[in-house]
Amino acid sequence: MSTQSTHPWLIVTLREVETKLRDKAFIISTLVTLVLIIGSIAVTGFLATRTTQFSMAATDQASLAVLKQASADAEENVKFSISLSTASEATAQLEAGTLDAILTQNSAQKFTLNGADEVPEELHGALREATGTVLTGQLLTSAGLNADQMPGDDALTISQLHGDAERASMIKVMALLFSFLFYMSALIFGMPIANSVIEEKQNRVVEILASAINLRQLLAGKILGNVVLALAQLMLFLAVGLFAAYLSPVQLPFLGVLPAVAGWFVVFFLGGFLVLAGIWATLGALASRTEDLQQSSGPVVGVLMAVLFIGIYAKGGFLVIASYVPIVSSVAMPIRLLGGEVSLVEPLISLVITLAACWFTILFAERIYRRAVMHTGGALTLRKALKLEL
């Protein structure tokens, strides 16, 4: 027996994959996304390790004290080159471009920061804080108090009952990444399922295919082809992103837990995408024109937008509830796993719920598809489609 008669769904799957891989727009968008992922991590690492050098001149002792204070308080990647000069000498150097700025104290005990064209905001902020520190110290000294005994910036530290601040920041970034990847993949690979069904209905190609392939296997091939593509692209993005993060000179916090959580995200992504694939196939079978799909796909796009916003902004009990709702759980549960306070039972229960939703949605989509895919007399409602004979 030939492969074609034994596995017709596999032929359809391979056709869907091959067609997409030949699409120049798909290839270009994938490459652009990879460049953006690598570029964003590379830029972040470069900015974090780049050393900024400021060449400064003070025209009096008080200004010199401010510059020394700013140099002492500066971050590791910010360096100050400080000199004490007369006003005329400093101005000449500023005009010649050998100085970035001049700090001067006037008769009112106020400071003026002079730049040639503009003063960098980073320099302005550093000197503003240093000026406040120096002037406060002078006032305390004149009042007979020791500035070293005053409370400093470390008088207040941040502590969280659950997790810590660095992990919370990492969760926010990964929540945005997971949400965006799911939203993008659901549109790029989900909507083409519906468009493919509509195109075959309009061109009557489905009638020819139905004579050679069982409609159930035709639908299965369409869904599996797009699932394979979506999953392959997602894993490529995650693998490249994690690899670039490991090579980055900046060590991201909790980088060791990301591969495991990324694995969970792939699993939940697969479940959520299958539910959406069934919905897209149903919408395509009910429509007779592309315009019909544009009208009926609004709720699905709304759900995807909800997933995007829930993944980014949901917290506390709302996030817990969302982690058990199919489609939304594809993003919500991996985000909770990043927090490190979820037992193994919870994602397994959520996954079982998602798989049950997949099973129901695919079966319902197959039922609608087999009844409505041959109908060309206009858009159908679910009720009308269910009344059609096979």
Rank of each mutant, 00 (worst) to 15 (best):
I279A: 13
Q294Y: 11
V257Q: 15
K201Y: 05
V303F: 09
L219M: 14
A244Y: 06
E200P: 06
L209Y: 05
A262P: 03
I279F: 02
M235D: 00
L234S: 00
Q202S: 15
N226F: 06
V240S: 04
S248K: 09
V228Y: 02
F309K: 10
V206N: 07
P259I: 08
F237H: 01
G271E: 00
S288V: 02
R289D: 15
L304K: 03
P249Q: 10
V301H: 06
A306M: 15
L224F: 13
V307M: 12
G256H: 13
F273N: 05
V275C: 11
L231C: 06
Q295N: 14
G298H: 13
G221L: 08
A244N: 04
L258T: 12
G298L: 15
P249E: 11
A210I: 06
A281K: 03
L270W: 07
V301S: 13
L219E: 02
T282R: 05
S211D: 11
R216G: 12
V303L: 15
L304Q: 10
L229N: 05
L252M: 14
A281E: 00
L242D: 02
V303E: 03
V206Y: 01
L242R: 10
A277P: 04
A210F: 06
L231G: 01
F254K: 09
L258E: 07
P259R: 08
L255F: 11
G263N: 09
N226Y: 10
L218I: 04
I213N: 05
F243C: 10
F309R: 11
R204I: 01
P253N: 12
S248R: 09
G298P: 05
L274W: 05
D292C: 09
A212C: 10
L270Q: 08
D292H: 11
Q233R: 11
G272N: 04
R216S: 13
I279M: 11
Q217W: 12
G221Y: 06
V266R: 01
F268Y: 15
G302M: 15
S211L: 13
L218R: 05
L270H: 07
L270T: 15
I223K: 02
Q217S: 12
G256Q: 14
T282I: 04
L270Y: 07
A220Q: 13
A239E: 04
P299C: 10
I223R: 00
G221M: 06
Q233M: 05
L242M: 14
A281I: 00
L276M: 11
L231M: 13
E200W: 04
L286I: 04
V307K: 03
F273D: 00
P249A: 10
L286T: 01
R204S: 12
K201N: 06
Q294I: 09
F269G: 00
P249F: 14
V301P: 03
Q294M: 14
V240K: 02
F243M: 13
G263S: 08
T282N: 02
L252V: 14
V301Q: 14
E200Y: 03
L274Q: 03
L218K: 03
A244H: 08
E291V: 09
V267S: 07
L231D: 00
I310F: 12
K222L: 07
